[in-house]
Nucleic acid binder design. Structure first.
Ligand SMILES: Nc1ncnc2c1ncn2[C@@H]1O[C@H](COP(=O)(O)OP(=O)(O)OP(=O)(O)O)[C@@H](O)[C@H]1O
Length: 763
DNA sequence: TTAGTTCCCATTTTT
DNA sequence: TGGGAACTAA
């Protein structure tokens, strides 16, 4: 009974309740995730449940992995228990469809490709061009968002004809045509976009009664975390797998569905998350037991009071107040910086102070948009504070990685026109725009895939002689890659996609003679990493398709490393995480709440919930900062503090600009000051902040200090994973970065960015 | 016809 | 700040 003692009575009740539907509604940090985790352990440990009977759904892959580890820890090392399937809805659907999509009878094969947002945008552009639409008028992004929202509600182009969001638009005929074309092309490409993964899984289970019965019998325990942000289709899936069907022979009483969520933390309605899933849960699952948890274990009383005060400003909610036995803790730090650069300096200086005090501290900097990360990255780099950046530049979303993946995806699915289009002339092989257009024309006329069109064009000699040669070589290349995909290891396939395609060769040439050798350098490194990832997957015994699926489904947040001392990420990515120290930055109207979500009341309330999520990530110390002036479109413009700040209790906030010695090194900012800053300076003076608050504008020379603290001195020997051992020839500043020129024997000189490149000092 | 360059745009959040 | 489209040189 040991681990059950870690739970309070309400939590324990939730864990012990294992028959029938259960809805756990609870505030931030009240132990919802803990309930799910413990319940899995309890089911395996005490209820004799088989791992295969349990389906646990989390919001991200990373959360899934963490949960798996926690469950394993609870069960103890002595148990060699197989763990249940824990993952996101999307990965669950992927698995289901890889196995059964052919029964759906819509022409898909189990080799279907998964199209992520980038693929979708390319496809939409292609459709747009084909229909002769004006891109200015209908931005591909907007179309993609709208199509996705419709699909996540389970709507088809036919349904959408009646939908107000669509019929009210002036371009509705065009939009509709585009939607239809998009769907048509996806199907022809044997490809599913993210929404399709859910759409088709629902269709499959709805249509195939036997399959449904089989999975209903298997997954007798279904647990869903972050339930408040599930969409319509995910709810449908839940209904199909777990709602009472009334067919005899089914032991519904033994069936258990447990969903946990917090309506105040619903921050994904903009992409179709539907709170109706929570509100109507009890209607769809009769005899639901509802348990609420309101004791917070995460944050100090102060932080919690601030969070509670904020969220009360939402009208569209059920009142619920969290409490805690934790100590009061320090006041929430508030710092209005003059400029966004100053804000970053302040935050990083504070981080440094915290890390000196407690090297184990885990600190998060949370912002509204990914673009805001840059200043904090630079400030960290300048100060020598190591950090992890989550999101924005996911490894598997980098262009070079996507290019190589496109080769592999094309090898796996010959109908995958988007992948083919992507790499047909990458690296340049003389099959350019005109040839592609000719091929597309042929494909359309003969109802062929682009791949088949290419083959036909070669066989029937429909291309100019020069192009013929390249096209033939290309066809053979993909043919070999395909054979390799069938028989070789994952690493073999990627090696072939890297080298035989000439991709690496082209990049190597660019490291020698191009405008941006550093960029080419970094790309080569990323590809090297991709190859290692492939080799690791081989070692785990993974299949090529699993590896590629995982690459397509990785989310930004999946890169989060819980042991990193400093993490930079969006507030959205921070959902479900916790940190002793949290900085919420950029609290300015227009940024947060974002200008595009400030007018509509519902959208504004979602922004407020987002702030609530951000605040409640903090365990001990919370900082709120903003800048009084910030560069936008390159121009420095004054800003207004976020309206949300006014909603927080004054007495719990401490204005650090009044008491704090400003840790800002003025000398570093000379270049930034220009006349347009004047209003902002005045603004901050009115707050009692004067330039005398910056007495530290000492002669501290940042570059010298950096030089002294860095181990990367000229003459030092370093090891690089790709090039081996070399010697540092030069170390120079270039903007915010420091460039190292390193000579490798037998290879030559290479340039790297200090702190970015995987360099290791050899003493 | 292709490849490289310049210019110009818009710019939230993400499974 | 970067990606994409239009433009231009080979
Ligand atoms: N009964 C308990 N005793 C001690 N600590 C607890 C207890 N319940 C939860 N905690 C701790 O409180 C913190 C928050 O728990 P958890 O992440 O499960 O909450 P949550 O409700 O999922 O949070 P959020 O909704 O903010 O994601 C964790 O650090 C967890 O270990």
């Amino acid at each position: 009974m040991t681990y059950l003692d870690d739970l309070n009575p309400a939590q324990r009740a939730a864990v012990l309740h294992t028959a029938g539907p259960l809805l756990v509604l609870a505030g931030a940090g009240s132990g919802k995730t803990r309930v799910i985790t413990y319940k899995i352990a309890y089911l395996l440990d005490r209820c004799g449940a088989e791992a295969s009977h349990i389906l646990a759904v989390t919001f991200t892959n990373k959360a899934a992995e963490e949960m798996r580890q926690r469950v394993a820890r609870l069960l103890g090392s002595e148990s060699s228990t197989v763990l249940p399937w824990i993952g996101t809805f999307h990965s669950f659907c992927t698995r289901l469809l890889r196995r059964h999509i052919e029964s759906l009878g819509q022409g898909y094969t189990s080799d279907f490709s998964i199209y992520d947002e980038e693929d979708q945008l390319r496809l939409i552009r292609a459709c747009s061009r084909e229909l002769g639409l004006d891109e200015q008028q209908l931005s591909p992004r907007a179309i993609q968002a709208r199509i996705s929202r419709a699909k996540s509600r389970g709507l088809t182009p036919a349904d959408v004809r009646e939908d107000p969001e669509w019929t009210s638009t002036p371009e509705r005929a065009l939009m509709l045509a585009l939607f239809e074309q998009y769907e048509h092309r996806l199907r022809a490409a044997n490809a599913l976009d993210f929404d399709d993964l859910l759409v088709k899984a629902v269709a499959l289970l709805r249509q195939e009664a036997r399959l449904r019965a089989r999975y209903r019998a298997q997954f007798r325990f279904i647990l869903v975390d972050e339930y408040q942000d599930t969409n319509r289709l995910q709810f449908e899936l839940l209904l199909l797998l777990a709602a009472r069907e009334g067919s005899p022979g089914e032991a519904d009483s033994e069936r258990h569905v447990c969903v946990v969520g917090d309506p105040d933390q619903s921050i994904y309605r903009w992409r179709g998350a539907d709170l109706q899933n929570v509100l109507e849960f009890e209607r769809h699952f009769p005899n639901t037991r509802v348990i609420t948890l309101d004791r917070n274990y995460r944050s100090t009383k102060t932080i919690l009071a601030v969070a509670n005060a904020l969220i009360r400003h939402n009208t569209d909610r059920k009142e619920k107040v969290l409490w805690t036995e934790n100590e009061d803790g320090p006041p929430v730090g508030y710092y209005p910086a003059e400029t966004a650069e100053d804000e970053a300096e302040f935050v990083v200086e504070r981080i440094r102070a915290h890390l000196v005090q407690d090297p184990q501290a885990r600190i998060a900097v949370l912002y509204r948009t990914n673009a805001q990360s840059r200043l904090f990255e630079e400030a960290c780099r300048r100060a020598g504070v190591p950090f992890r950046l989550v999101g924005g530049f996911s490894f598997y979303k980098r262009a070079e990685v996507r290019d190589i993946l496109a080769y592999v995806r094309l090898a796996l699915n010959p109908w995958d026109d988007e992948s083919l289009r992507r790499i047909l002339n990458v690296p340049p092989r003389g099959i350019g725009q005109k040839t592609l257009e000719a091929l597309e024309h042929l494909a359309r006329a003969a109802q062929l895939s682009l791949w088949d069109a290419l083959q036909v064009a070669v066989i029937e000699r429909r291309l100019p002689e020069r192009t013929m040669e390249s096209a033939r070589t290309f066809l053979q290349l993909i043919g070999r890659l395909r054979a390799c995909a069938r028989e070789g290891t994952i690493a073999d396939v990627f090696r072939m996609a890297l080298y035989e395609t000439g991709y690496v060769q082209a990049l190597r040439e660019r490291t020698l003679s191009s405008s941006d050798p550093l960029d080419a350098e970094n790309r080569l490194l990323n590809l090297e990493e991709l190859l290692s990832a492939a080799a690791e997957a081989d070692e785990r015994g993974e299949r090529l398709r699993e590896f590629v699926d995982r690459a397509m489904l990785v989310a930004d947040t999946d890169e989060y490393d819980p042991t990193a001392p400093v993490t930079l990420m969006t507030m959205h990515s921070a959902k479900g995480l916790e940190f002793p120290i949290v900085f919420v930055v950029g609290l300015e109207d227009g940024l947060f709440p974002h200008a595009r979500s400030s007018t509509d009341r519902e959208e504004l309330e979602e922004e407020r919930r987002l702030f609530y999520v951000a605040i409640t990530r903090a365990q001990r110390q919370l900082y709120l900062t903003h800048a009084c002036a910030r560069r936008r479109h390159g121009r420095l413009a004054p800003t207004t503090p976020s309206r949300f700040l006014k909603e927080l209790p004054r007495d719990l906030l401490q204005d650090l600009s009044l008491t704090e010695r400003a840790p800002i090194d003025r000398s570093a900012h000379n270049g930034f000051f220009d006349p347009s800053l004047a209003p902002a300076t005045r603004l901050s003076r009115e707050r009692g902040q004067t330039s005398s608050l910056h007495p530290q504008a000492s002669a501290r020379s940042p570059s010298r200090e950096r030089g002294a603290s860095s181990p990367f001195r000229e003459g030092a020997r370093v090891r690089h994973p790709l090039y081996g051992v070399g010697r540092i020839l030069a170390r120079e500043e270039s903007g915010a970065q420091i460039l190292l020129t390193i000579a490798f024997p037998g290879i030559g000189k290479r340039k790297f960015v200090e702190g970015l490149a995987p360099l290791e000092i050899i003493s």
